[in-house]
């Protein structure tokens, strides 16, 4: 549930598969061109999945399907990669000798 002026994200199918450019790989041609835009909700209230209007940071009015309220970033540094420690040990041993950084 979102209210007017809430910061939200909307989704738009820009081009249907049959409307896409012809010079693209087969797998891409079978899916639509999709777009996501964020902005402040113009409608009074809306539920996820509703067709709504938002006003973006630059003041553009864009219509699309409400897909997130208060969207945030969740990307991170990923899982532990043991190989990176091995690289550290290898190059330090070559350059400084095995004992220095044991």
């Amino acid at each position: 549930m979102a209210n007017k002026n809430d910061w939200v994200q909307i989704h738009i199918d820009v081009l249907k598969p049959e409307e896409r450019a012809t010079n693209i790989p087969e797998d891409t041609r079978h899916v639509p061109l999709e777009m996501w835009v964020k902005g402040h909700l113009i409608d009074e209230t809306a539920e996820i999945g509703d067709l709504v209007k938002v006003r973006t940071k630059t003041g553009r009015e864009v219509e699309g399907t409400l897909c997130a309220v208060n969207p945030s970033f969740k990307h991170n540094f990923g899982d532990y990669i043991p190989e990176l420690d091995t690289i550290d040990e290898t190059v330090k041993t070559i350059l400084f000798g095995g004992e220095t950084h044991a």
């Binding site: 693209i24 639509p32 777009m35 964020k38 940071k57």
Partner: peptide
């Protein structure tokens, strides 16, 4: 991450799926 940084610096970020038709938008 680049989207986050652009937003942090005040830009509006428009995100698309794969395809050269980005140029059309």
């Amino acid at each position: 991450e680049k989207a986050r940084k652009c937003e942090a610096l005040g830009a509006e970020v428009v995100q698309l799926t794969v395809g050269p038709e980005l140029f059309y938008m």
